[in-house]
Design a protein around this nucleic acid. Structure first.
Length: 579
DNA sequence: GCCGTTTTCGGCCCGACTGTTTTCAGTCG
């Protein structure tokens, strides 16, 4: 299987972008985007479905036309329509729509009137004052384009923030806004509230008696870099961090409706709005209405109840089946942080962690954990000072001593003797089996030789899973968000099936730049009954709090406490670790 | 291009804000 859902989605989105600039029917353009979104959210590979001869047009937003394009991509690796579109309209020109305030219509116009082909010519035209003379443009727009181009040269557009960085920016701003009007509601909506792995911009919903004062204070917040728009109900600023923030002031009776509307996702909202429309009602950010009569809007619960849905947690609002589940009362009881009884991947200063074992365990005690696995690197990870067999034995002896001391002190935590052993290039492990067998817990991970064919990588991981000492496959895809470290290519479905057969668990690594498995993969694991370990991979005490990101990611994959091994009491966990 | 228990044709979410207009188009979310 060579082509993955993400590749197909990229191709369809690119085609949509080009058609958009060419002035194609906007609904047709949207169809391609909808289909791309469906593919991204799919827990199965479309290529698999094609090979099995299944009907792709059964999928939402995919009809016979796009289905045949997907088949072409799967079978030939190319999309002829996309290739000819690229020849007609250059990707350079299409990229101009990334410039703020430039959409497909304006780009098309600039191309037709001024012959602009890309960013360089756009800048030249703006500097020479030729843009202002184009119909529909003016001096202000020209200036904005120029400013935006200069900004883009310094920081690339469409910057997204990992959740931890988004929190650093968001929480102080929320505290500031709450301080302005303690009686009002202030909530961050959008992908931040849905706990997506990255956040593009921020939507804050606020209720207040004094919108003018709040808007003024918002635009004068100390971390504001520039004000992009300022109105009575909506203002937009860009913070110094680069994060764009929209603040929306709403009436209390619309608070739930606005929160719901701006939490999204878009696809989810469209689907629930349709339920309202089918009943002859209207749903928007102000409420649910029957004609002029308001049926609901003060709270999200009120809205859900009015359209006969169980309340859907924000993490699930992606239009991936949650609406049907809510209607039939079979939404999952999502995992919570308090379900977690221990951390199953952590490091110490014996390798690349920052703190000694004792201090890490102390922090784990503070979190109320029942168990805590220390899993330092093995020797292959030389940059981290990975442990050889002797060093690991010594560490395990000190774990034993620590456990004795903790028991004497009456601390209710058990430290598990673990290791994060490297999976070598040929799929063998970096430490001898007899030593691994003596561990309470073995996490096996890949850190090196990430570039190999999909087939070889699959075989490599399969071989590692065959080793009966292995309990958990650590950060399974090896991706790093925002660092352009793409996931390693292997047959995820086959690895998951093999792990299930062999009693191996897959990790949800809670490091905010990893979050590996992804939400989609978590969902796939759940569907096949494969259990997961949510672990922080902590390298210092404060990292233990990353657990919340791992839990959120799992929730986005519909994971419940029963799907996660480190929700079990220690005896039950130990049983699961026997293979 | 997709979709259908008012439909196989004719819809497809819609409101705020801005800038360029003189009543509205484009963009964004």
């Amino acid at each position: 299987m060579a082509i993955h859902n993400g590749d197909i989605a990229d191709a369809l989105n690119e085609l949509a972008d080009i058609l958009d600039v060419e002035g194609a029917n906007s609904f047709r353009v949207r169809s391609y985007r909808d289909a791309a979104r469906t593919l991204r959210g799919l827990s199965r590979e479309a290529a698999d479905m094609v090979e099995r001869g299944e009907d792709l047009s059964d999928l939402p937003g995919i009809g016979s036309g796009i289905a045949s394009k997907i088949r072409e991509l799967v079978e030939t690796g190319k999309l002829s329509q996309l290739e000819s579109a690229r020849e007609r309209t250059s990707p350079e020109l299409v990229s101009l729509t990334e410039v703020d305030q430039l959409g497909p219509k304006r780009v098309k116009k600039l191309h037709e009137v001024l012959g602009v082909e890309g960013p360089a010519q756009l800048k030249q035209a703006a500097e020479q004052g030729r843009i202002a003379s184009v119909e529909g443009f003016g001096k202000k727009t020209e200036k904005r384009i120029l400013d935006e181009l200069e900004r883009l040269e310094q920081t690339p557009s469409s910057q997204r923030f990992t959740l931890d960085r988004a929190e650093e920016t968001t929480e102080p701003l929320l505290a500031y806004l709450r301080g302005l009007d303690p009686a009002g509601n202030v909530t961050a909506a959008g992908s931040y509230r849905r706990r997506r792995e990255t956040v593009g911009d921020l939507d804050i919903i606020i209720t207040t008696d004094d919108p003018d004062r709040i808007m003024e204070a918002f635009t004068e917040y100390e971390n504001v870099d520039r004000v992009a728009a300022r109105g009575r109900t909506r203002s937009t600023v860009v913070l110094i961090s680069g994060m764009q923030v929209d603040l929306r002031v709403v009436e209390p009776e619309s608070y739930g409706a606005a929160l719901y509307y701006f939490t999204g996702s878009k696809a989810h909202n469209v689907a629930t709005r349709k339920i309202a429309v089918d009943r002859g009602w209207k749903m928007n950010e102000y409420g649910l209405f029957d004609g002029k009569r308001r049926l609901a809007g003060r709270s999200e619960e009120e809205l859900f109840a009015a359209i006969d849905l169980a309340p859907i947690p924000p993490e699930l609002r992606e239009n991936r089946g949650e609406i049907d589940a809510a209607r039939d009362n079979r939404l999952p009881h999502l995992l919570t942080e308090s379900d977690i009884r221990g951390d199953l991947q952590t490091h110490t200063d014996a390798t690349d962690g920052q703190l000694p074992l004792e201090e890490m365990v102390e922090a784990a005690v503070k979190r109320g954990y029942e168990y805590y696995a220390v899993t330092d690197h093995s020797k292959r990870v030389s940059v981290a000072g990975g442990l050889d067999a002797d060093a690991l034995r010594r560490q395990h002896k000190s774990v034993d001593r620590l456990n004795e001391r903790l028991a004497k002190e009456g601390k209710e935590i058990v430290v598990l003797r673990g290791v994060e052993v490297d999976i070598l290039q040929d799929g063998t492990l970096d430490l001898p089996d007899e030593l691994l067998a003596a561990c309470d817990l073995v996490v096996a991970s890949i850190h090196y030789d990430r570039e190999m064919s999909e087939e070889k990588m699959t075989e490599r991981i399969l071989r590692a899973l065959d080793n009966r000492c292995v309990n958990i496959l650590g950060h399974p895809t090896g991706r790093m968000i925002g660092e352009a470290r793409e996931p390693m290519r292997f047959d995820v479905q086959r690895i998951m099936r093999a792990a299930l057969d062999r009693g191996v668990f897959l990790e949800v690594n809670a490091q905010p730049e990893r979050l590996d498995l992804s939400d989609i993969h978590c969902r796939r694991a759940k569907e096949m009954g494969l259990k997961l370990a949510v672990s922080t991979d902590a390298h210092t005490a404060s990292h233990l709090s990353y657990m919340k990101y791992g839990v959120a990611q799992a929730c986005r994959g519909w994971i419940e406490a029963d799907d996660v091994i480190n929700t079990r009491p220690l005896p039950a966990l130990r049983k699961l670790l026997e293979r």
